[in-house]
Design a protein around this nucleic acid. Structure first.
Length: 481
RNA sequence: GGCGCCGUAGCCAAGUGGUAAGGCAGAGGUCUGCAAAACCUCGAUUCGUCGGUUCGAUUCCGACCGGCGCCUCCA
């Protein structure tokens, strides 16, 4: 098996090989901490989580860098509007981002460099670019990158021959630049920047970094520990292709003379009725909204995995409900496998076969440009076949067989992480459990006496407390929702 | 205007030049005191429309209709 990934640079799926195996360096553009990140932002972070987990599953030694943009137009404006210092405004949103990340069970990156803590590295980078003559100081005091000095500019976005649309957004610094397409590396300090504490001294003037600069400076700094100036993978949302990633390439490669990243991966949008989820449109939902609704993160993940990452996904409540039901079904199977693991076998070989089919198909699917939808399809085929087998094997399916199937499920879940959190992890007081057991005993007594009215009354009473019952030959099971 | 993406059952969607995965919802059934869970059966003669290439196209090409994205700081 070999992993292949779609590379935006070449616009095709290519075999993936890292520069220095088994090490893989990944840089993913992180959140701008001016506000809570919404679910669309997290779709990208989740696709990156899948990438990371699959690489690790394949045995790669991944080093994952995710930046936190804590100084830019929006953070500065938001801080000023709140009458706060920059750091004071962004800190809670950094924490919120980490909380949401954990809720969604996204593996933490190895480092989270922050723009405000990388000012010296950025100043150095701008200095280098000035020295090389690919950057210049504009009439307004800001420093710009001269794209005319970088022949391959536009290679990633393929917008090199583009013309500015008449009436399209035109930067206010237009007249300070030699070429309207040049972009800011360092922006001269404005009063609002000083007001919130977002201005730093530099040899080329007091100011603050341009948006693209931080990613180049921080990623190069982070991978310098491996003695390289080339990332194996750089990923982000599809909207970052231009200008963000294009500009990162220009800055980095002009400075180092080496390829900035070997693979560029871009995730598609999360849509709402056909339009991208966005703060601007007000059609967004945050992770904390879902958490408040007690939506299991597994449902969000399953929903996202059912659509390929390079395909727009239309989000709505019905789709989310569907994923929730799917997660429930997965949990039922896992519980069955655990329960049945201790009983003797009728047909021990069948489950083992199903388990190995699952893992094989799962690996093939993810190796093919992270074909998560195919992996999910294989998972549910496994669920159906395993349940059928469990239904059939009256006396049990064998310790080894059940354990093996459970293990296969666990392997799958280490990458996809779509199984709900184990019920035992949910907060249940011993008192509550004892009360439920008491009710169950009373109900069982009523059932034996054929007093089904009383039995149903107890069941309804338990349901009102969030306890669902399931009568099985082995007794009544219950779970707290 | 430039570059690009998409249009598959009620919803979310996968996919291939050879006759449509998977999930959810829905209908019927098995099991059950009834439920629940699980399993079984059922749904697109059809993949936006119209042409073309081909023995054969949802899949390739063209046109059109519809939706969307990027075009200097949006994941």
């Amino acid at each position: 098996m070999a992993l292949s990934l779609y590379n935006t640079l070449t616009r095709r799926v290519e075999p993936f090989t890292p520069l220095l195996p088994p090490r893989v360096t990944i840089y993913t553009c992180g959140p701008t901490v001016w506000q809570y990140a919404h679910l669309g932002n997290f779709r990208t972070f989740l696709f990156e989580d899948l990438l990371r987990r699959h690489l690790e599953f394949l045995g790669y030694d991944v080093f994952h860098i995710m930046n936190l943009t804590d100084v830019d137009d929006r953070t500065i404006k938001a801080a000023a509007a709140a009458g706060k210092r920059l750091e004071e405004h962004t800190a809670p949103f950094v924490q919120a981002f980490f909380d949401d990340r954990d809720y969604l069970r996204i593996q933490p990156a190895h480092v989270y460099p922050r723009a405000t803590e990388a000012i010296p590295a950025m100043v150095r980078l701008v200095g280098q670019l000035l020295d090389k003559g690919v950057a210049y100081k504009g009439e307004d005091g800001s420093v710009y990158f001269a794209i005319g000095k970088f022949p391959t500019y536009g290679r990633l976005s393929r917008l090199d021959r583009r013309e500015l649309k008449v009436g399209a957004r035109v930067a206010s610094d237009e007249y300070a630049k030699d070429d309207p397409r040049d972009f800011a590396l360092w922006k001269r300090a404005e009063p609002i920047d000083e007001q919130v504490g977002a201005a730093w001294d530099a040899p080329f003037g007091r100011g603050r970094p341009g948006w693209h600069l931080e990613c180049s400076a921080m990623s190069l700094d982070a991978i310098s520990r491996f003695g390289v100036a080339t990332l194996d993978i750089h990923a982000g949302g599809i909207d970052l292709i231009f200008p963000h990633h294009e500009d990162e390439i220009a800055q980095s490669e002009a400075a180092t003379g080496q390829p900035f990243a070997r693979f560029w991966l871009h995730g598609e949008f999360l849509n709402v009725r056909g339009t991208k989820m966005s703060k601007r449109f007000g059609n967004f939902l945050t992770a904390r909204d879902l958490r408040e609704q007690r939506v299991d993160a597994a449902a969000v993940r399953l929903l996202f995995w059912q659509t390929h990452y390079r395909q727009a996904l239309d989000f709505n409540d019905e789709a989310l409900e569907g994923a929730k039901e799917g997660v429930k079904r997965l949990g039922e199977l896992r519980a069955r496998l655990v329960e049945r693991a201790a009983v003797d076998s009728a047909r021990p070989g069948v489950l083992a076969e199903l388990a190995s089919e699952l893992l094989s198909e799962f690996g093939i699917a993810l190796d093919d440009d992270l074909g998560a939808p195919r992996a999910v399809a294989a998972l549910f085929e496994f669920v159906r076949a395993a349940n059928r087998e469990l239904d059939r094997g009256q006396g049990g399916i064998g310790t080894g067989a059940a354990a093996g199937a459970g293990a296969a499920l666990a392997v799958f879940d280490r990458v996809m992480t779509v199984l709900d959190v184990l019920p035992t992890a949910k907060a249940l007081t011993p008192e509550f459990a004892a009360w439920v057991e008491g009710q169950l005993a009373a109900r069982e007594k009523a059932r034996r006496a054929k007093d089904f009215r009383e039995a149903d009354r107890i069941r309804a009473a338990l349901r009102a407390k969030g306890v669902e019952l399931e009568d099985t030959p082995a007794g009544t099971k219950w779970r707290a929702g």
